[in-house]
Design a protein around this nucleic acid. Structure first.
Lengths: 194, 194, 194, 194
DNA sequence: CATGAATGAGCGTTCATTCAT
DNA sequence: CATGAATGAACGCTCATTCAT
């Protein structure tokens, strides 16, 4: 990659980070191109040099978050620990991201409404791949008899659903800290699995 | 109520139903007054005869769903059955509504972004009252020792969160029927509670 | 006139009075048909039975005020008093109406913007007739040498202009009472005329 | 100021001029953003690049006229001439502006109906400052005994009122030229003051 | 006669997108 | 490359007007 390309790549990342921030603050629908640009002291026109339109920008934003999340989970998956411990760690990591990235993570919720057919397929595929990590951990636990669950897919849906919902009500000033929530959630989910 | 008033009340309901439909199809932010009116073969101007603005319309839409949901759950609550059975029924009823009303039910998710200060307080109160039904059932079960759970509030959050998430992925053509999902979810949640 | 006609005529006057009131309160442009009707506990649809459209209603409103004003001034004109006294009385009467009817009287200001060609001619004619009353008093005073003024038309413009302007700034709570203003204005105008 | 900024400033002025024109033609309430833009061969959306909304645009329009008017009058005020001559000049200058700017100057009339609380205070203050110029000239004339008037404030109201009214009836094709009107008005007002 | 209901044209405003410089 | 500027389509909302009942 040439210097120029590296510079452009870096700028792209900056923009995505800014977009994440603005979306977190205002929600997706209220995040205007102007806002995203202003955060970087650019003008909105310039954004179109890096991304061909708003959807494209958002698509990349979504991918960035999801990819980094996947990396983290994959790393946990390859650790040599019990399924229960692996599950605990995976749940906590997921909650951590879901809470920290709030709105951006929320892009995952309704992709059909935000993205056009062009991108939607790939988005759903990535989302599925992300979910499959949980499926794998559950399957592993079932196989080595740590978990006793008849319908692993449903268990995964419950775990992910409940976790994703946390960002709906979580507040840093709330009764429970992020860490407490992660612990309690992990505990309850395991009660369900074993 | 006079005939006139009944007719007007019916029209209002028609509009709310149309709004529900459009919101389900396009999501809240993309549901235009024009769309809502078109569904009823009206012009958007006419909607303003019945509701003073879009927020008011949506607020009523939200209330309609939530009120009817509460009624159903309250009815279940006053039945004389075990806490476990009550919980099962309540979960199924909730899932039933969440799936059928999809997006409209989803208005409950981010009221801060959709409603102005005027309405938000009452909305949150109603949402809380709804959640309290689950709290009551859990408390009851804990009291008569059917449930063994140390943190009832978190359990409720998990149950509601996971349930609300169903509408994100549920499709009538999917692998599981609505009834199957309800059964499995109820079972898993109870595994967590007992 | 039949009873029915008399009843309709009375209703028409009620409407005009209501219109005057609403216009005084909100200004012409912000006086909606709904407001005018509401004042009479009617619905706006009914207004169209009596007046074919808003302009027609306003046109009549304008005429009502102007006609009654003319009557008062004509009466003063036919009194057997000195030109100076006549002028004083006429000025005071005009000020009295201009202040009391404020906004409605203001309709006279920009008829071209409010009325269509259909009505405008007659409106201007009436306005001119009203002004001619002042011209007559001035002419009379010049003839019997009470006034020494070279350009009577201009004097009239100044008198009417300054008087009409009063409603722009007059407030019942202001430093001067209506009567004081009338006295001072009359005095100053006469200083100008003699 | 850079070239860019000068260009933008010029465009802003162009818009204000266009707004003045349209307002003069149609009156304030009937001057649409579309009209104002069309006059400059722009689309209405573009106006929002320069002014954040219609009120802001109009507020600036009003300020532009009033500021330039004040400058002219202040200049006259600091001349070393008799109070009578000063008054004459000030009246003529005011009439000149009132006639030429017609409707825009008329914005001053009913600011309460046109502007929101945000701007109204400043507008009224500016209007008052403008009026105070006349008060000063009158006070000066009273002090050096050129004028013999007992109620200077009322005299000012009459002068400004009558002058402002000119634009109501003035037409370039009328019987009197602008200059003739200015002369006659000045003469009559002075008759009143001395 | 009066009303409830509906209409439709128009307005202010927002915002993603484009493009010459 | 970046920007200032412009565009145009869309949206929420208002209101005079119409008309069946």
């Amino acid at each position: 990659m040439s210097l120029r390309e590296r510079k452009a790549a870096k700028k792209k990342e900056d923009i995505l980070r800014s977009a994440s921030l603005v979306i977190s603050r205002n929600g997706y629908q209220n995040a205007t191109m102007e806002d995203i640009a202003a955060e970087l002291l650019m003008t909105k026109g310039s954004l179109y040099y890096y991304f061909k339109n708003k959807e494209e920008l958002l698509y990349n934003c979504h991918n960035l978050i999801l990819s980094s999340a996947m990396e983290k989970l994959e790393a946990i998956c390859s650790e040599k620990i019990s399924s229960m411990d692996k599950m605990k760690k995976v749940i906590k990591a997921h909650l951590d991201i879901a809470i920290r990235e709030k709105e951006v993570f929320n892009l995952i919720v309704k992709p059909e409404q935000l993205f056009s057919e062009e991108n939607i397929e790939e988005i759903i595929e990535k989302r599925d791949n992300y979910a499959k990590i949980f499926d794998r951990v559950i399957a592993e636990g079932v196989k080595n008899e740590e978990f006793t669950i008849s319908n692993p897919k449903m268990a995964r849906m419950i775990i992910l659903g409940a976790s994703n919902w946390v960002q709906v009500w979580y507040s840093a000033e709330g009764q429970y800290s992020k860490e407490e929530i992660e612990d309690i959630y992990a505990e309850y989910f395991l009660r369900m699995l074993v």
